[in-house]
Amino acid sequence: IVKSWVDTGFKKAVVEHGARLGIDVEVVDRNPGVRGFHVVKRRWVVERSIGWIMMHRRLARDYETLAASSEAMIHVASIDNLAKRITDEATPTWRGTY
């Protein structure tokens, strides 16, 4: 990981920890002049990615004991999502959508 974007709630601790690990951590601030909902730069990437992997039942809740198991399931979900895009075919999900 070379670059990471974080919400304003993670200002100092995450930036300092990222610096120790050699990761460029950028805090994404909201526009104070805009009231109500508005799109925050780069945040949609995280929200979209989490939404994609949550379509896989095993990742909908944190049931894994080992972090390696969770990581493997995220890889499987990512491979499935990529295969869907390449082949334009869908595999059934736990929600019953295709």
Rank of each mutant, 00 (worst) to 15 (best):
I1G: 14
V2N: 14
K3L: 12
K3G: 07
K3M: 10
S4G: 13
W5A: 00
W5D: 00
W5N: 02
V6G: 00
V6A: 09
V6C: 07
T8P: 05
K11L: 12
A13E: 10
A13I: 10
A13L: 13
E16V: 15
H17F: 14
G18F: 01
A19E: 15
A19W: 02
R20I: 12
L21W: 13
G22Q: 08
I23R: 00
D24G: 06
V25L: 05
E26H: 06
V28A: 13
V28I: 13
D29V: 10
R30W: 03
N31Y: 06
G33H: 13
V34R: 05
V34G: 04
R35H: 14
G36P: 02
G36K: 07
F37G: 10
F37L: 03
F37Q: 05
K41E: 09
R42Q: 14
R43H: 11
W44I: 05
V46P: 01
E47M: 05
R48K: 05
S49N: 05
G51Q: 02
W52C: 03
I53W: 00
M54K: 15
M54G: 07
H56N: 12
R58V: 06
A60Y: 13
A60F: 07
R61W: 04
R61Y: 02
R61E: 09
R61A: 08
Y63K: 05
E64I: 01
L66V: 08
L66C: 11
L66P: 08
A67V: 12
A68K: 14
A68V: 10
S69P: 06
S69D: 08
S70L: 12
E71V: 11
A72K: 09
A72L: 12
A72N: 03
M73D: 07
M73C: 09
I74Y: 00
I74P: 00
H75P: 02
H75W: 12
H75S: 04
V76P: 00
A77C: 05
S78W: 03
I79V: 15
L82N: 07
L82R: 04
A83P: 01
A83S: 09
K84Q: 04
K84E: 14
I86H: 02
I86R: 01
T87W: 00
T87G: 03
D88N: 11
D88K: 11
D88S: 12
T91Y: 09
P92R: 15
P92V: 10
P92Q: 11
T93E: 03
W94I: 15
R95P: 02
G96T: 10
T97G: 09
Y98T: 15
Y98Q: 07
Y98V: 04
